[in-house]
C-alpha cells in the first residue's frame, strides 16, 4: 500500500503585486513529522501557511492528505492552525474555556473529513472517537498546555505566552490531524518558550500529531524539530535535521541571507 503524505507542495508560487513572496517551492510532510520551517522575517513563511490553508491565492499544487483544494472544506477543519497573532477586541467577554470550546467543530464536519481521508490511501489507521464529551475534550486540551487553573480567566487578562497556549489548546481540542504553528513564541519570554516547546514535543511524540512550525530561532529548531525546511522565498534545504546542522555551507548561507534580510528591513 502506498503511503500518502500529510502534505505535498509542488511548484508553489505566491505573488504580491507581481513580486514573489513564495517562489516556486516544493516539499512534503510525512505523518508524525515535526517540521521546523526556518527563515528570516519576510521569507514567506506565513504566506506559505496561508496558501496551504486555502486563505491565499497561489499557483502550483498543494495536496493535503492526497487531496487538492476542491476538498478543502472538509479537510481544513481537521487542521489546527495557530497564527502568529490572533487579533480580538481587548474587552471581549470570553473566558479561556469559551475560546477553547470554539475549537470544537460539529461531528458532521469531522465525519466528512475523516471519511475522505480514510478513503484515500493514506497511512491513517486512526478511528475517530468523536463522541467523547466536549467538556472532557476541553479539559484535556487545557491540561496538555498546562492552563487548567486559568479556565475561567477572561482572555483579555492573559499574558502573551498564556494566550499562545490558549490558541494551541483551541487547535488541539478538535484532535487535529495536522498542527500548523506560525512563529509560536514570537511574543513569549524565554522561560515560557521552553515550556511551550515541551508542549509541542509532547503533542508530536505522545499524541502522534504531525506538526509544522515556523521560527527564525536555529537553537529551537535544532532541539525540537526532526525535519527542517530552510526558506527565504525559495527553499534552500528540506530534509533531516542532522543533515542541515552538519552542513556548514548551508548554515553559513542561512545566516548570511538572514543578515541581509535583517539589514534590508532596517533600511526601510
Amino acid at each position: 500500500m502506498s503511503v500518502t503524505n500529510v502534505l505535498d507542495v509542488k511548484d508553489l508560487t505566491v505573488n504580491y503585486d507581481n513580486l514573489p513572496a513564495v517562489d516556486n517551492i516544493s516539499f512534503d510532510v510525512k505523518q508524525g513529522d515535526c517540521l521546523g520551517i526556518i527563515g528570516p522575517n519576510g521569507a514567506g513563511k506565513t504566506t506559505l501557511f496561508r496558501a496551504i490553508l486555502g486563505l491565499q491565492p497561489y499557483s502550483g499544487n498543494i495536496k493535503l492528505f492526497g487531496y487538492e483544494d476542491s476538498k478543502y472544506d472538509s479537510i481544513v477543519p481537521l487542521i489546527g492552525y495557530v497564527p502568529q497573532k490572533v487579533t480580538f477586541e481587548p474587552n471581549f467577554p470570553a473566558t479561556v474555556y469559551d475560546v477553547v470550546s470554539m475549537g470544537l467543530i460539529s461531528d458532521k464536519r469531522i465525519v466528512q473529513g475523516v471519511k475522505l481521508i480514510q478513503q484515500c490511501d493514506c497511512c491513517w489507521n486512526r478511528i475517530y472517537q468523536s463522541i467523547e464529551k466536549n467538556d472532557d475534550k476541553i479539559t484535556q486540551a487545557l491540561h496538555t498546555v498546562g492552563l487548567e487553573s486559568l479556565r475561567n480567566r477572561r482572555i483579555g487578562e492573559l499574558s502573551g505566552g498564556e494566550l499562545q497556549r490558549v490558541f494551541i489548546a483551541k487547535a488541539l481540542v478538535k484532535d487535529p490531524l495536522l498542527l500548523i504553528l506560525d512563529e509560536p513564541v514570537a511574543s513569549v519570554d524565554v522561560e515560557s518558550q521552553t515550556k511551550f516547546y515541551n508542549v509541542i514535543k509532547t503533542i508530536n511524540e505522545q499524541n502522534n500529531i504531525t506538526i509544522i512550525w515556523s521560527s527564525h530561532d536555529l537553537d529551537a529548531i535544532s532541539k525540537y524539530a526532526n525535519r527542517v525546511a530552510c526558506m527565504n522565498k525559495k527553499i534552500f534545504f528540506h530534509g533531516e535535521k542532522e543533515k542541515f546542522f552538519s552542513d556548514k555551507e548551508l548554515l553559513k548561507m542561512y545566516t548570511e541571507s538572514s543578515m541581509q534580510m535583517h539589514m534590508h528591513n532596517h533600511e526601510h
Partner: peptide, 18 residues
Amino acid sequence: QKQFLHLTFNEEQAKLAG
C-alpha cells in the same frame, strides 16, 4: 450562538473551523 461567537471573535479562524 457558538457560530456567531466564533465569527465575532475572529472571522478567519471561524472560516478555518469549517
